[in-house]
């Protein structure tokens, strides 16, 4: 009899029973009514801010070709309500809980880290640096290496569990930002957050979402996300969590080959609530078919020798 393939992976000090977890903002305890959350490699919360905020005005969602736009704007009930009401609901399940945190200034990240440190039941933090930096005219916090390094170092000093950093793809050099996160003390890099996008309804002469610009996600962004994962994985020694457009087991294998140790699934859970659990089952079957003993064999195993493409390829 052939043993089932080994799906376990390690994100620094955090062992996972399989590499599939939800993307922040695309998961919540509510899904427990529809899927078996205990099958997931980890759970990830929506980004929590220190103070309550209401997010953006409607409409917050629009369909695009093979993707979607959201201008939700990260509403958060703040640290207090998170600890008292949301966090306890995750205790119904066993996968490690990764809490996403955000802020609009460097200080705000340190504040939320301080308020959540020593709170039981948090296995790791994911620092979402795709938030506008109010101290730098609204440029994303994650657009500047020095700011990312300062945020990560400050959060790291204040908490006792691993700190992951979730990068924005809306930058010139994702490698430089990934290195800054690693220097700041990150245990893993999550790549990537939503691409900045936009949709217009010419009949009404209005943008389709309440804010003109919105986050572009779903299968359409997969090539960009895959490229970002590849670049980040080349740039740092810490593990990379791949996210962006993943909807099938083939997508998962592509990200792992490009350098991802684990993956997150966002928009595809909206399409079908059971996407993650179906992918986990399919991953086991696929590895078994291919005679792969451990998924870890495939991490970063992309072959770039001839005759296939060499690195780095330039468009045109």
């Amino acid at each position: 009899m052939i043993a089932a393939p080994d799906l376990r992976v390690d994100l620094g000090d955090l062992p996972l029973r399989n590499p599939v977890m939800p993307a922040s903002g695309c998961f919540g305890p509510e899904l427990g009514d529809l899927i078996d959350i205990n099958r997931l490699g980890a759970m990830v919360t929506k980004t929590v801010f220190a103070e309550p905020r209401s997010g953006n005005r409607a409409h917050r969602l629009a369909e695009t070709y093979a993707g979607m736009l959201n201008s939700v704007g990260i509403p958060s009930r703040g640290a207090r309500a998170f600890i008292a009401e949301l966090l306890p609901r995750y205790r119904n399940w066993s996968p490690p809980l990764i809490v996403s945190i955000g802020g609009l200034t460097v200080g705000a990240y340190l504040e939320i880290a301080e308020r959540l440190t020593r709170v039981a039941g948090i296995a790791a933090f994911e620092v979402n640096v795709s938030c506008p930096n109010l101290e730098a005219g609204g440029l994303e916090i994650g657009a500047e290496p020095q700011v990312v390094e300062a945020v990560v170092r400050g959060v790291k000093e204040r908490v006792e569990v691993p700190v992951f950093v979730k990068l924005t793809p809306n930058v010139t050099s994702i490698a430089a930002i990934a290195r800054a996160a690693e220097t700041g003390g990150a245990s893993a890099i999550t790549a990537v957050n939503a691409l900045m996008g936009m949709a217009v309804d010419w009949r009404t002469r209005r943008p389709r979402t309440g804010t003109a610009m919105a986050g572009f996600t779903g299968p359409a962004i997969k090539p960009v996300a895959l490229r970002c994962v590849w670049q980040a994985a080349q740039a740092v020694a810490i593990p990379v969590i791949g996210v962006g457009g993943i909807a099938t087991v083939d997508d998962v294998l592509e990200f792992i080959l490009a350098g991802a140790t684990a993956v997150q699934i966002g928009s595809a859970t909206f399409t079908r609530p059971d996407t993650m659990v179906r992918i986990i089952a399919a991953l086991e079957a696929r590895l078994s078919d291919e005679g792969v003993v451990s998924v870890r064999e495939l991490i970063g195993a992309l072959r770039t020798d001839s005759p296939s493409a060499t690195v780095p390829m330039q468009a045109g």
Partner: peptide
């Protein structure tokens, strides 16, 4: 079902 916050509005 209540986790994406796409159906609400804020300011």
């Amino acid at each position: 079902i209540g986790y994406c916050h796409g159906c609400a509005s804020g300011h």
